[in-house]
Simulated assay, not measured.
Amino acid sequence: MSMCDCSTQDELVEAVKEYMLQVKGVEDVFVLTDEDKKSIEQLEEDAKGNVLMGMGEGDNQGIAEVFKREHILCFTTNKDYIWPEPPNVIMMQDGEMIGFDCSAEEICKYEEHPDYMVIGTFIMNKANTVGKTGKPIVVLPPKPCDLGELEVEDAVLGSPSTPSDEYIREVYHFEKSNEKGTFFLGFNKVKCID
Protein backbone atom coordinates (compact mmCIF):
# COMPACT_ATOMS: atom_id res chain seq x y z
CA MET A 1 0.00 0.00 0.00
CA SER A 2 1.32 3.40 -0.94
CA MET A 3 1.60 6.27 1.54
CA CYS A 4 1.21 8.86 -1.21
CA ASP A 5 -0.42 9.37 -4.53
CA CYS A 6 2.45 8.53 -6.85
CA SER A 7 1.56 11.05 -9.51
CA THR A 8 4.19 11.89 -12.07
CA GLN A 9 6.69 14.65 -11.40
CA ASP A 10 5.10 16.78 -14.13
CA GLU A 11 1.63 16.38 -12.59
CA LEU A 12 2.97 17.37 -9.19
CA VAL A 13 4.67 20.48 -10.56
CA GLU A 14 1.47 21.46 -12.39
CA ALA A 15 -0.52 20.99 -9.16
CA VAL A 16 1.90 23.25 -7.27
CA LYS A 17 1.69 25.85 -10.04
CA GLU A 18 -2.11 25.79 -9.89
CA TYR A 19 -2.03 26.08 -6.09
CA MET A 20 0.33 29.07 -6.20
CA LEU A 21 -1.83 30.84 -8.80
CA GLN A 22 -4.63 30.83 -6.22
CA VAL A 23 -2.48 32.70 -3.67
CA LYS A 24 -3.47 36.35 -3.35
CA GLY A 25 -1.01 38.60 -5.14
CA VAL A 26 0.63 35.88 -7.24
CA GLU A 27 0.42 36.79 -10.92
CA ASP A 28 2.39 34.10 -12.76
CA VAL A 29 4.20 30.86 -11.95
CA PHE A 30 6.71 29.10 -14.16
CA VAL A 31 9.27 26.32 -14.02
CA LEU A 32 12.86 27.41 -14.38
CA THR A 33 14.66 25.90 -17.35
CA ASP A 34 18.06 24.27 -16.82
CA GLU A 35 19.62 27.32 -18.47
CA ASP A 36 17.74 29.63 -16.06
CA LYS A 37 18.93 27.59 -13.08
CA LYS A 38 22.56 27.78 -14.17
CA SER A 39 22.32 31.51 -14.85
CA ILE A 40 20.64 32.27 -11.53
CA GLU A 41 23.04 30.09 -9.56
CA GLN A 42 25.93 32.00 -11.17
CA LEU A 43 24.29 35.38 -10.52
CA GLU A 44 23.73 34.45 -6.87
CA GLU A 45 27.32 33.24 -6.55
CA ASP A 46 28.56 36.50 -8.07
CA ALA A 47 26.34 38.49 -5.71
CA LYS A 48 27.85 36.85 -2.61
CA GLY A 49 29.98 39.32 -0.77
CA ASN A 50 28.53 42.30 -2.64
CA VAL A 51 27.01 45.03 -0.53
CA LEU A 52 23.29 44.38 -0.12
CA MET A 53 20.85 47.25 0.40
CA GLY A 54 23.80 49.45 1.32
CA MET A 55 24.06 47.66 4.67
CA GLY A 56 26.64 44.90 4.34
CA GLU A 57 27.79 41.86 2.37
CA GLY A 58 25.00 39.63 1.16
CA ASP A 59 24.35 36.00 2.14
CA ASN A 60 21.26 34.72 0.32
CA GLN A 61 20.56 31.56 2.30
CA GLY A 62 17.00 31.41 0.97
CA ILE A 63 18.03 30.95 -2.65
CA ALA A 64 20.74 28.50 -1.60
CA GLU A 65 18.08 26.34 0.09
CA VAL A 66 15.67 26.61 -2.84
CA PHE A 67 18.36 25.35 -5.21
CA LYS A 68 18.93 22.26 -3.03
CA ARG A 69 15.38 21.11 -3.86
CA GLU A 70 14.31 18.76 -6.63
CA HIS A 71 11.80 21.18 -8.19
CA ILE A 72 12.24 24.93 -8.56
CA LEU A 73 9.55 27.38 -9.61
CA CYS A 74 9.59 31.13 -9.91
CA PHE A 75 6.52 33.21 -9.24
CA THR A 76 5.81 36.86 -9.81
CA THR A 77 3.89 38.97 -7.34
CA ASN A 78 2.03 42.26 -7.14
CA LYS A 79 1.41 44.59 -4.20
CA ASP A 80 -1.35 42.32 -2.85
CA TYR A 81 1.08 39.48 -2.14
CA ILE A 82 1.58 38.93 1.57
CA TRP A 83 5.24 38.38 2.35
CA PRO A 84 6.27 35.61 4.74
CA GLU A 85 6.39 36.57 8.40
CA PRO A 86 9.51 38.58 9.27
CA PRO A 87 12.36 38.52 9.68
CA ASN A 88 13.02 38.39 5.96
CA VAL A 89 16.27 40.31 6.31
CA ILE A 90 18.73 39.74 9.16
CA MET A 91 21.94 41.66 9.75
CA MET A 92 24.76 39.75 11.42
CA GLN A 93 28.11 40.97 12.68
CA ASP A 94 30.79 38.91 14.39
CA GLY A 95 28.31 36.01 14.52
CA GLU A 96 25.59 37.97 16.34
CA MET A 97 22.31 39.36 15.06
CA ILE A 98 22.46 43.15 15.16
CA GLY A 99 19.45 43.98 12.99
CA PHE A 100 16.28 42.54 11.51
CA ASP A 101 13.09 43.56 9.77
CA CYS A 102 9.74 43.27 11.50
CA SER A 103 6.10 43.96 10.82
CA ALA A 104 4.70 47.47 11.10
CA GLU A 105 2.69 46.29 14.12
CA GLU A 106 5.85 45.17 15.94
CA ILE A 107 7.73 48.45 15.53
CA CYS A 108 6.07 49.99 18.60
CA LYS A 109 7.90 47.47 20.81
CA TYR A 110 11.22 48.99 19.76
CA GLU A 111 10.53 52.68 19.10
CA GLU A 112 10.98 53.87 22.68
CA HIS A 113 13.57 51.28 23.75
CA PRO A 114 17.02 52.86 24.28
CA ASP A 115 18.89 49.80 22.92
CA TYR A 116 17.17 49.86 19.51
CA MET A 117 17.12 52.16 16.50
CA VAL A 118 14.12 51.96 14.14
CA ILE A 119 14.67 52.60 10.43
CA GLY A 120 11.33 52.10 8.69
CA THR A 121 10.53 48.49 9.54
CA PHE A 122 14.18 47.59 10.15
CA ILE A 123 15.37 47.36 13.75
CA MET A 124 19.02 47.82 14.77
CA ASN A 125 20.18 46.61 18.16
CA LYS A 126 22.54 49.43 19.22
CA ALA A 127 23.72 47.49 22.27
CA ASN A 128 24.89 44.56 20.10
CA THR A 129 26.86 46.77 17.71
CA VAL A 130 29.10 48.32 20.37
CA GLY A 131 32.67 47.10 19.94
CA LYS A 132 31.96 45.04 16.83
CA THR A 133 34.65 45.22 14.17
CA GLY A 134 33.66 42.55 11.62
CA LYS A 135 31.91 43.28 8.35
CA PRO A 136 28.12 43.30 8.59
CA ILE A 137 26.50 40.40 6.74
CA VAL A 138 22.95 40.79 5.42
CA VAL A 139 21.24 37.40 5.48
CA LEU A 140 18.15 36.64 3.39
CA PRO A 141 16.89 33.52 5.19
CA PRO A 142 14.85 30.70 3.65
CA LYS A 143 11.17 30.87 4.52
CA PRO A 144 8.79 27.93 4.81
CA CYS A 145 5.96 27.67 2.30
CA ASP A 146 2.65 25.97 3.04
CA LEU A 147 1.38 24.15 -0.05
CA GLY A 148 -1.80 22.85 1.55
CA GLU A 149 -2.60 19.20 0.96
CA LEU A 150 -0.15 18.75 -1.88
CA GLU A 151 2.20 15.84 -1.35
CA VAL A 152 5.46 17.71 -1.20
CA GLU A 153 8.14 18.07 1.43
CA ASP A 154 10.79 20.63 2.26
CA ALA A 155 8.91 23.47 0.50
CA VAL A 156 10.92 26.65 0.92
CA LEU A 157 10.83 30.21 -0.44
CA GLY A 158 13.80 32.35 -1.37
CA SER A 159 13.95 36.00 -2.33
CA PRO A 160 16.36 36.59 -5.23
CA SER A 161 19.23 39.04 -5.26
CA THR A 162 18.78 42.08 -7.49
CA PRO A 163 20.73 40.55 -10.43
CA SER A 164 18.59 37.38 -10.34
CA ASP A 165 15.39 39.42 -10.13
CA GLU A 166 16.52 41.50 -13.11
CA TYR A 167 17.41 38.33 -15.05
CA ILE A 168 13.90 36.90 -14.53
CA ARG A 169 12.25 40.20 -15.48
CA GLU A 170 14.28 40.40 -18.69
CA VAL A 171 14.03 36.77 -19.80
CA TYR A 172 10.31 36.46 -19.05
CA HIS A 173 9.40 40.03 -20.03
CA PHE A 174 8.10 40.78 -16.56
CA GLU A 175 7.24 44.42 -15.91
CA LYS A 176 9.78 46.41 -13.91
CA SER A 177 7.93 48.00 -11.01
CA ASN A 178 8.52 48.59 -7.30
CA GLU A 179 5.08 47.08 -6.68
CA LYS A 180 5.94 43.82 -8.43
CA GLY A 181 8.45 41.23 -7.39
CA THR A 182 9.79 37.73 -7.86
CA PHE A 183 10.17 34.78 -5.50
CA PHE A 184 11.60 31.31 -5.94
CA LEU A 185 9.95 28.18 -4.56
CA GLY A 186 11.76 24.89 -4.12
CA PHE A 187 10.24 21.58 -3.02
CA ASN A 188 10.70 17.83 -3.13
CA LYS A 189 8.16 15.18 -4.06
CA VAL A 190 7.05 13.03 -1.15
CA LYS A 191 8.75 9.67 -1.58
CA CYS A 192 6.39 6.76 -2.07
CA ILE A 193 6.57 3.81 0.32
CA ASP A 194 4.98 0.59 -0.92
Rank of each mutant, 00 (worst) to 15 (best):
E85I: 06
L52D: 07
A127F: 05
L150I: 04
S7N: 13
N188R: 13
D154S: 10
E18M: 07
E112T: 15
E153P: 12
D59I: 00
W83P: 15
R69P: 03
P86C: 07
D146N: 15
M55Q: 10
M1H: 15
A104F: 00
D194K: 11
P84S: 14
D10P: 10
P144S: 10
T133L: 15
N125W: 01
I107V: 14
N78V: 12
E105S: 05
E44I: 03
F100A: 12
G56H: 01
D146H: 10
E179C: 13
D34Q: 05
E106I: 00
C74L: 06
H71D: 09
K143W: 04
T76V: 08
E57F: 01
T162M: 11
Y110I: 08
V118K: 12
A47V: 08
K38N: 08
K24V: 12
E11F: 00
D36H: 10
E44K: 13
P84Y: 14
V16G: 12
V26H: 05
K48R: 15
E106D: 13
H173N: 07
L21W: 05
I123L: 07
K37L: 09
Q61D: 08
Y167N: 02
V89Y: 02
N178Q: 13
S161Y: 06
D115R: 11
D154F: 00
F75G: 09
E149D: 08
D146S: 12
D59K: 14
P86I: 01
D28L: 03
I168K: 05
G49Q: 08
G134L: 05
H173A: 03
